[in-house]
């Protein structure tokens, strides 16, 4: 087994092209668990933590670019205003020790149905930047998840970063687990409102083979109180039911399919209500960019 430690992204791509079997490592919080447990070691570890350009984020027009190496810690402390849903999800990941190391790209690389960033990336319409020596391509998040712990990257590709719109309205995230920390979600929901377009997007986790959107629930957007006022009980109920109907849960050690279907429905209603309450509170959702000082 080899340990390869490039210091530029170009070198990292060249290494990955030269040995597609090499496994990239960032925080190691998924990978090292397996290696410590004696899983067969890959021929090489491709350490990306010395690639400084991945450990950065930037605002570009109405989008935020988040480099592959940005940790949950930084999502929480630096991106809470621009990407509130992602920061909320990041706060629920593991423990401080985990959040100090683990990354967004690592969550995508693992592509677990229960990964906490996935519902938010789906709800905000993120794009994954996949790069190789052949060039770079943008994979819409809706096309990224290919099956249980499978994704759309080619063997020679690395995730360079993720792009997502600066918030266009309130965003919420919630998950169910047995503790308030250190839990993989039994189910999770992210909701993102686009105030200017009057649309809502919903992502769910741990309730299907892959993270997925709840499209039928999104179709209920026109019934939401965009100009303020209470959420109609019937709309809330239909929204929750539509989210539950979008799932295909299983029984496993963390919960039964029936419990997941029930709890995801409850979470969907709650996160929608929280997001609408935020809408009431904020005075300045500045059109498309959603820049709000509220």
């Amino acid at each position: 087994m080899e340990f390869v430690r490039p210091t530029t992204f170009a070198d990292a791509l060249a290494e990955k092209a030269a040995r597609p079997q090499a496994v990239p490592i960032l925080g190691g919080t998924d990978l090292m668990v397996g290696l410590n447990a004696g899983h067969p070691p890959p021929p090489a570890l491709l350490d990306l933590t010395a690639v400084a350009e991945l450990d950065a984020w930037a605002v570009d027009d109405d989008e935020v670019w988040i480099g592959a190496g940005v940790t949950y810690r930084r999502l929480i402390t630096e991106l809470g205003t621009l990407c509130p849903g992602l920061a909320l999800a990041a706060r629920t990941v593991g423990s401080p020790q985990i959040r100090n190391r683990a990354t967004l790209a690592g969550n995508l690389g693992t592509a677990s149905p229960g990964g906490d960033t996935h519902p938010v990336l789906l709800a905000t319409g993120a794009v994954v930047e996949a790069a190789s020596v052949r060039g770079q391509r943008a994979i819409p998040i809706d096309d990224f998840y290919a099956g249980v712990k499978r994704h759309a990257l080619a063997p020679d590709e690395l995730i360079r970063g993720v792009r997502l719109p600066i918030r266009r309205g309130p965003q919420q995230f919630a998950k169910v687990g047995t503790r308030n920390a250190m839990v993989i979600a039994v189910c999770s929901v992210a909701v993102a409102l686009d105030v200017a377009r009057r649309t809502v997007r919903v992502g769910v986790g741990s309730v299907a083979p892959t993270p997925r959107r709840a499209l039928a629930a999104e179709d209920l957007a026109s019934g939401l109180p965009w100009d303020g006022g209470p959420l109609d009980d019937d709309v809330a109920r239909r929204f929750g039911a539509a989210v539950a109907a979008a799932t295909a849960p299983i029984d496993d050690v963390r919960g039964t399919a029936a419990y997941r279907r029930h709890s995801v429905e409850v979470l969907a209603r709650r996160t929608l209500a929280w997001a609408l309450a935020d809408l009431d509170r904020s005075e300045a959702w500045d059109g498309m960019t959603g820049r709000s000082e509220a």
């Binding site: 090292m32 668990v33 290696l35 410590n36 570890l45 401080p96 100090n100 190391r101």
Partner: peptide
């Protein structure tokens, strides 16, 4: 738990080569 570049991390999840 150790401090790696000043931040607490689980040393069991850091590959030794990453601490170079």
């Amino acid at each position: 738990t150790v401090l790696l570049d000043g931040l607490p991390v689980c040393a069991c999840l850091v590959a030794a080569g990453q601490a170079q």
